[in-house]
């Protein structure tokens, strides 16, 4: 994306969950809304306006980003992953499975962001401790769970992912 004039709508093309998609966006369209409204992937949520809550966390080129604080035009040509890309052919990702098994979610609103942040963490190193997980998810707020079961879920998913790697 080179130049986008004020209020003009331009096509933004990105690879999302393995699929190449194009939709129109203004320069001021935030990536979170582009994903939710233009690409109709509503699993990514918006919970604040100060880049605090992390409900909108997606991976851009493998890195967790708060998609409410990135412009859609900035994602042009990049690779985006959202919660909808986690399960494969109906089989849950170990993280999804662990969140389910360990009651790692309640209202579910922060969950997509938690999952994406945790995914990037475990891809780097699946062997994580409680302390590592607590720090890694500290940009994602949850009001329901008190984090205990989220931490447990992430550790368990990591153990499973480590086994799968071997």
């Amino acid at each position: 994306m080179e130049k986008v004039e004020s209020r003009a709508e331009v096509p933004v093309t990105l690879t999302i969950n393995g699929e190449t998609r194009t939709a129109l966006a203004e320069s001021r369209t935030l990536l979170a809304y582009f994903i939710r409204e233009n690409l109709e992937l509503t699993g990514t949520h918006v919970g604040c306006d100060t880049t605090s809550c992390g409900a909108c966390t997606v991976l851009v080129d493998g890195v967790p980003v708060k998609s409410c604080t990135m412009l859609a035009v900035q994602a042009d040509g990049h690779v985006v992953e959202t919660v909808e890309g986690l399960d494969k052919d109906g089989v849950l990702h170990p993280l999804q499975q662990a969140f389910w098994d360990n009651h790692g979610l309640q209202c579910g609103f922060c969950t997509p962001g938690m999952l994406m942040t945790s995914l990037a963490l475990l891809r780097k190193n699946p062997n994580v401790t409680e302390d590592v997980v607590r720090h890694a998810i500290s940009g994602n707020l949850c009001r329901c769970t008190g984090y205990v079961n989220i931490v447990k879920s992430v550790i368990e998913a990591g153990q499973k992912m480590a086994l799968e790697e071997v």
């Binding site: 080179e2 130049k3 004039e5 209020r7 001021r28 809304y33 306006d49």
Partner: peptide
């Protein structure tokens, strides 16, 4: 919350 409109130039 949306920003006011602006022109975007990528260098």
């Amino acid at each position: 919350m949306f920003p006011e409109a602006f022109a975007y130039y990528a260098a």
